[in-house]
Design a protein around this nucleic acid. Structure first.
Length: 485
DNA sequence: ATGTTC
């Protein structure tokens, strides 16, 4: 038996890429880390393993508290964490969803090839940077209004279709078809709505970006064909979330829940895990507000899609906008009521995925019709120097991870440390000169914080997902140009 | 992640 120890946390190797932390003290269940030995060494360097043990204390946690191969420490609950919590007897925890509610990624297919774009990267990156609002603060693709915010919160991408910013095909190629019917905008504070109002269609800052990429490899021809991906073709990846609106909702409910449910909080090892008991008023309110923020984030990515279509049509004669198609949009900071088989019993669970992506296999009803025979697309962005992957939901994901896999490469170091190690201008120059990747950002500090060296190896993260059978490799992309906050 | 410290 192989054992690894990091500070107070002991892990036993269950089998290849599966490590278990035994149940002890107030833990409801054991915890599991899905990682290669090399990734486990990196995960063990920050507080994420202790946070995972803490997460296993949440009442109603089912089977295991789980860490994906890209895990790193977060607020209370690790990023790259999955917690499936009983929706009748358990709880819901804003810290296990994350501050940026429905942070996620979507991939657009274009009719362009790398040959069309080569030599015009700087023109393209300038045009996109001018067209897509980015950075902290206000300003979006559309001028926000009270009605626009309410429409987005209530109806998600359906609102965008009504307004002419989305097509019916966009709806069909989005997780939850772009709308959470459980949204309750009345539980979103005025302050949150005010923050969101002038941010409708904006990237934000931090690790958020819009990246033009070329498909470099396909690993599964049948599935790549079903997803419409071919080597040499240009795709666009959009990574952003619910901006100040989601952040405000999370802050509001963490505070309310701490005040109202101190008894539950006293049983938890970290107050940042504050959770509302299932069936309580605050659980209903947070879930309704969170679902509304989910809708808002989908609209946000949709408005950026709209502006991207216009920009590509402006820059390239061969593009008219309608031919830029949404492949899929996935959320990776989210909680959702889902039914799962647990030891032969059908259970209703709040599946919290914080920095984790739903990865449902073929056949599951939530997978859109276009992909139901092959499994849902899973989009795993790497760093701006590394490229990204498209996976398909794996056949073992329901059994191993409540239908989940990783969400990205995962950070290796804090933003503060990153700025000590890297200088944004140098990172930018090196990428252009050595890799022909053109990056444009509002701030050099952001480039330093997001330098390729700040991230784990996305190839290794994806290898583990693929070998575990929770998310299987379909295609790989490489960056062409990237705009950031 | 975030009107980058309620």
């Amino acid at each position: 038996m192989t054992t690894r120890e990091f500070d107070d946390v002991t892990l036993e190797r269950v089998r290849e890429h599966v490590w278990e932390i035994a149940r002890e003290g107030g833990m409801e269940v054991p915890a599991r880390v899905l990682a290669s030995e090399a990734l486990l060494e990196e995960i063990g360097e920050d507080d994420s393993l202790q946070q995972l043990k803490n997460a296993a204390h949440l009442p109603g946690m089912t089977k295991y508290a789980l860490a994906m191969p890209d895990a790193h420490q977060g607020y209370g609950f690790p990023v790259g964490g999955v917690g499936a919590i009983d929706a009748e007897d358990g709880c819901i925890s804003p810290g296990a969803v994350g501050f940026d509610i429905n942070c996620g990624v979507r991939m657009l297919r274009t009719p362009l090839t790398y040959d069309d774009v080569r030599g015009r990267e700087e023109e393209l990156v300038d045009a996109l940077f001018d067209a897509v609002p980015s950075g902290l603060g206000g300003g979006g693709v559309v001028e926000g209004s009270r009605d626009a915010v309410e429409g987005a919160l209530e109806r998600g991408v359906e609102w965008a279709v009504e307004q002419g910013y989305a097509t019916d095909a966009d709806l069909k190629h989005c997780e939850d078809e772009g709308r959470r019917p459980d949204a309750k905008p009345e539980y979103v504070s005025k302050k949150a709505k005010d923050r969101g109002m002038n941010q409708m269609g904006s990237l934000g800052s931090g690790n958020h970006f819009l990246e033009v990429q070329r498909v470099t490899d396909t690993f599964d021809d049948d599935v790549a064909d079903a997803y419409g991906l071919r080597e040499g073709e240009i795709v666009v990846l959009i990574h952003c979330g619910s901006r100040g609106l989601g952040h405000q909702i999370c802050s509001n409910y963490v505070r309310k829940i701490e005040q109202e449910h101190g008894d539950l909080l006293d049983r938890l090892p970290d107050k940042d895990l504050a959770a509302a008991p299932a069936g309580s008023q605050l659980a209903e309110e947070y879930y309704g507000a969170m679902c509304a923020a989910v809708n808002f984030a989908w609209v946000n990515r949709q408005l950026i899609t709209h502006r991207t279509r216009e920009t590509l049509a402006d820059v390239f004669d061969a593009v008219d906008g309608d031919d830029v198609e949404l492949l899929y949009d996935v959320a990776h900071n989210i909680a959702k009521r889902e039914s799962h088989d647990v030891d032969g019993e059908d259970r209703e669970l709040f599946v919290h995925r914080k920095g984790a992506t739903r990865a449902f296999p073929a056949g599951r009803e939530e997978v859109p019709a276009a992909y139901r025979d092959v499994g849902q697309p899973v989009i795993i962005p790497g760093s701006m120097g590394a490229g990204s992957y498209v996976l398909k939901g794996g056949d073992r994901s329901l059994e191993e991870t409540f239908g989940s896999t990783a969400h990205g490469a995962g950070r290796l170091m804090s933003r503060t440390q990153a700025k000590q190690e890297f200088w944004g201008g140098d990172v930018q120059d090196d990428l252009a000169e050595q890799e022909h990747i053109y990056v444009k950002a509002n701030s050099g500090a952001t480039i330093a914080e997001e330098a390729p060296g700040v991230y784990k190896d996305v190839d290794e993260v994806v290898r583990v997902s693929d070998e575990l059978g929770i998310g299987d490799k379909v295609a790989r992309t490489f960056p062409v140009c990237n705009i950031k906050g």
